Computed example of a mutant assay.
Amino acid sequence: MIELVNSDRCIGCDICVKVCPRDVFDSGDDGLAVIARKSDCQTCFLCELYCPVDALYVSPHAEQDDEVDSEQLIAQNLLGSYTRNMGWSRGKMGGTDKDPTRQLRILNRVGREEQPTPQRQLL
């Protein structure tokens, strides 16, 4: 479940707001992301994956609310750690075999290549 938006790192890009499939985030009055509907989080990690500045921490515990300390997460290098583990770098898609989205992109590309190009009929 999403546990933290680090306000010192957040740049207000709203990428997390846009990629969240459950509409968990809002853009705050100061322009920074705010966790508005935490209980709606499905722990998909998309927000953490796409954050370009490693400002988010998603706990792997989907069903419980973990109390986290921002300074401790920073000291343990846990902000953005899921992103790095997937082979991504600061919001950029990865290419390692550990990245399940890479496999989806490959399958999607292969699927498009296998489909015949529609032919136009001449009248």
Rank of each mutant, 00 (worst) to 15 (best):
G28P: 02
Y57S: 05
Q103K: 15
D54H: 01
K18W: 12
L104V: 11
C44Q: 04
R105T: 07
E113I: 13
D14S: 15
Q42V: 15
V58I: 02
L49K: 14
V17M: 01
E48V: 03
I35A: 04
L122Q: 10
G80Y: 08
T43V: 07
E63W: 06
I11S: 00
P21V: 03
L56M: 04
A33P: 08
M86L: 10
S27G: 06
V58M: 03
D8E: 12
P60R: 03
F25H: 13
M93T: 11
A55T: 03
A62Q: 13
Q119Y: 10
R112N: 11
F25I: 10
A36C: 05
D14T: 15
T83V: 08
D99E: 12
R90G: 03
G91H: 05
H61W: 08
M93G: 05
C51F: 05
D99L: 07
L4A: 00
G91C: 04
D40V: 11
L104D: 04
S7P: 03
T96F: 03
R112C: 07
G31I: 08
L79G: 09
I2S: 00
L49Q: 08
D30M: 04
V34W: 02
S59E: 06
R120N: 01
D26Y: 09
D26P: 00
L49R: 09
D29I: 06
P21A: 01
W88M: 04
P116Q: 14
D97R: 07
R109V: 01
E71W: 02
M86W: 08
N108I: 02
K38T: 13
L73P: 05
I2W: 01
V53M: 01
I35H: 00
Q64D: 09
F45V: 06
T83K: 15
C10T: 02
T96A: 07
K92M: 04
I74M: 01
E48L: 00
P118I: 00
R84A: 12
L107G: 13
W88N: 05
S70V: 11
V17S: 08
C16P: 08
D8Q: 05
E114M: 14
D97S: 10
R90E: 08
E114Q: 15
C47M: 06
E48D: 02
W88S: 07
Q115P: 02
V58R: 02
D66R: 03
D29S: 14
L79C: 07
R90I: 01
L104N: 06
S59W: 03
K98L: 13
D26A: 08
Y50T: 06
G94K: 09
D99N: 15
G111W: 11
